[in-house]
Design a protein around this nucleic acid. Structure first.
Length: 294
DNA sequence: AATTGAAGCAACCGCCATCCG
DNA sequence: ACGGATGGCGGTTGCTTCAAT
């Protein structure tokens, strides 16, 4: 999948990553963290640009990436956020733990954009938000307000201080305190909107994420995995993806016929915040690949 | 069985914002 | 305050896979 190696300009390799390269990168970050992406390839012994390493890590190797087809809930979230934020894939991805901006962007370009241009109904479980472009059901004033507040919420959460150390963190905290969106979001009006959301109408993907069960890579039910064989040869097909594939959720809601909890457990590769998954340095890469690839 | 075109997606490119000396 | 270095992001490319013919 992806591009094949095309050149070795300046001794730097391009194109698809080999398993060996993946392992080197994975092991290195596992031991040292990524540090400076610029110096990482040299330190790790990779003939790649730092940028390429960062991309590979964030889009594929990161253990907290959730693989497999997008669920109807996720589709709805993407459509909703794209409607309020536009093509801000990073901001959208920040609201969907386990999904990368690249993955969401691809999914939008190849599935949702196409589908939105057709009269086919979108699966919209757990949301009352109408979709822009649906001429038969124009956005109500209330809905538009909700969309505006959803946008505010996303902007505010995107500005939350990261885990950067020391002075940087203080500066971030300063910006954070002065932030317009956060002020708005933390106001009484914002609180009212949050309360409305809690009521069930417009599900926040953040709360959705926090409810997901965290599993170690070795805790996936072997029996379940054994029953999910598939003929697919793509290396990104996890056992979970195999289950989902059988019901092709992109066109139907059959996905919901499966146990939601079981699916979430299967789809959710451990991660949490930051690099806490690295604390457990068990057979890391091999287990990781075993889980991820068929 | 062979061919062809569409779909899917990993990876690259270039611009912009932020950091840091 | 300035400028180079670095990281992040969105758009695009092109290879692989798969379904249709």
């Amino acid at each position: 999948m992806g591009r094949s190696p095309c050149c070795n300009k300046d001794g730097v390799k391009k194109g698809a990553w080999s398993t060996e390269e993946d392992q080197i990168l994975f092991d290195y970050i596992n031991k040292h963290g990524h540090g400076s992406w610029r110096t990482l390839p040299k330190n790790a012994g990779l003939l790649r640009w730092g940028k390429s390493c960062r991309l590979r890590w964030t889009n594929y190797l990161r253990p907290d990436i959730k693989r497999g087809p997008f669920t109807p809930d996720e589709e709805a979230t993407i459509v909703k956020l794209q409607g309020t934020l536009g093509n801000k894939w990073a901001a959208i991805a920040s609201q969907m733990p386990g999904r990368t901006d690249n993955e969401i962007k691809n999914f939008w370009n190849t599935h949702l954009k196409k589908r939105l241009s057709t009269p086919l109904p979108l699966p919209l479980p757990n949301t009352n938000i109408k979709i822009e472009g649906d001429s038969s059901s124009p956005l109500s004033t209330t809905t538009r307000h909700m969309a505006q507040w959803e946008s505010t919420r996303v902007e505010a959460e995107a500005r939350l201080p990261s885990s950067r150390p020391g002075k940087q963190q203080q500066q971030q905290q300063h910006k954070f305190n002065q932030d317009y969106y956060l002020k708005l979001w933390n106001s009484d009006i914002g609180k009212s909107f949050r309360d409305i959301n809690k009521g069930g109408g417009c599900e926040s993907s953040t709360s959705q994420a926090s409810s997901l069960t965290k599993l170690g890579s070795g805790s996936v039910d072997d029996d379940t995995l054994a029953t999910t064989t598939t003929t697919t040869t793509t290396k990104t097909c996890s056992a979970a993806a195999a289950i989902v594939k059988r019901s092709d959720s992109s066109e139907t809601n059959e996905f919901t016929n499966y146990s939601d909890t079981a699916l979430k457990q299967l789809l959710d590769i451990p991660g949490g915040s930051g690099m806490d998954f690295l604390e457990d340095e068990s057979d890391d890469f091999i287990n990781f690949l075993d889980l991820r690839c068929v």
